[in-house]
Design a protein around this nucleic acid. Sequence first.
DNA 1: ACCTGAACACCGTTCAAGT
DNA 2: ACCTGAACACCGTTCAAGT
Lengths: 211, 211
Amino acid sequence: MARPRQNLLTRQRIIETAAAIVDAEGLEAVTVRRLGTELGVQGPSLYNHFATMAEILDEVADAVVARVDVSFFATHDWRSALGLWARSYHAALSAHPNIVPVLAQGPGRRPAALAMADAVYGGLIEAGWPPARATHIGALMRYLVTGSALGSFALGFAEDPQLYALYPHLRDAHLLAEHQHSVDEGAFTLGLDLLIAGLDRLYASLKGVRA
Amino acid sequence: MARPRQNLLTRQRIIETAAAIVDAEGLEAVTVRRLGTELGVQGPSLYNHFATMAEILDEVADAVVARVDVSFFATHDWRSALGLWARSYHAALSAHPNIVPVLAQGPGRRPAALAMADAVYGGLIEAGWPPARATHIGALMRYLVTGSALGSFALGFAEDPQLYALYPHLRDAHLLAEHQHSVDEGAFTLGLDLLIAGLDRLYASLKGVRA
DNA sequence: ACCTGAACACCGTTCAAGT
DNA sequence: ACCTGAACACCGTTCAAGT
């Protein structure tokens, strides 16, 4: 059989395959040899397309961030835009929790993460927030979204009821896993609503508006 | 030279040595062989004291959580207690940021993490919060603290000014690193203050108190 | 009971050789 | 230009052998 004129690999194919492994089995399951097997090549072939394994995972992470909708800042009041963006960000990360540790290190040089930071910061500045405060708000939102996506609170407790015998108030903690979605979503929604309401009041006081 | 009657290793010594490496060089620097070298034994000797490497890192993480002060719930109003605890939790994690990914997976079977969850949840229940809300508040606080400790927002941007040419509002992002402490602390403090003020209002409305 | 030395099945990455 | 095969310097973990 003749050598195909088209390359066996593209960056896109590699990233998609890596993303599928991350979602199904976690970050540690993505190895050079495993990727090679799934792509039908030998492991070292990947180095014709990427310099390091970390670069591949960075692109997987950025593809997730690229799906976050930042368009609201162009069309909505800053309060609505912040809430809609944060929900979109949260939804994108919750769909791919295994990649969150890579994302949580900051935008670095990832284009989608930088574009998102630019849109959010720009939106807040144009709404009249002082630069230092706009930075704080952007940081705070990242803390909440990555913190909530990084590890499910509900699933963070072991399933073993006996474990909690020593802790008087944790008697039913082993049941949290059954209510994972409502616990984790409820906590995120509570936090987001409280923060936006609080920022609204802070904004009003900054602008000299009396309640 | 005779064989010492005392063991060369103890769990305590291993954990302390691992913690020092984590702090100085990060999680990836902690290897069985490296620990062996620093402890004056061969790597496999560690398996007489721990079943896995993950178990060692779990204990390093729990030692950090053990330093969080949860006593406030016994002595203070829930609002003050929540704020003082969250600041103590944040300070403990900020002092050892490299171990945060281990912590962020939840308490699991770690005694200090379980004791902390018990104290916080118990304190909120005794203050009169409904159980579901108390769970949300505990989760929310973990999101904020681990999210902020996991990766510095300020240090998450590359130091290369040229990188930001494409992003109109990020022109000065490369300067964030110089103000790391005030950016990261400012964002955390803003978030904590807004959340506690918001929870105070929510509590008042739950208890039927009119503003 | 605890430590050693050798071994197993992995890693990421490099590089000369092939096409 | 891209892929292969062999190699290097690592991993965590197991286990028989020593004391």
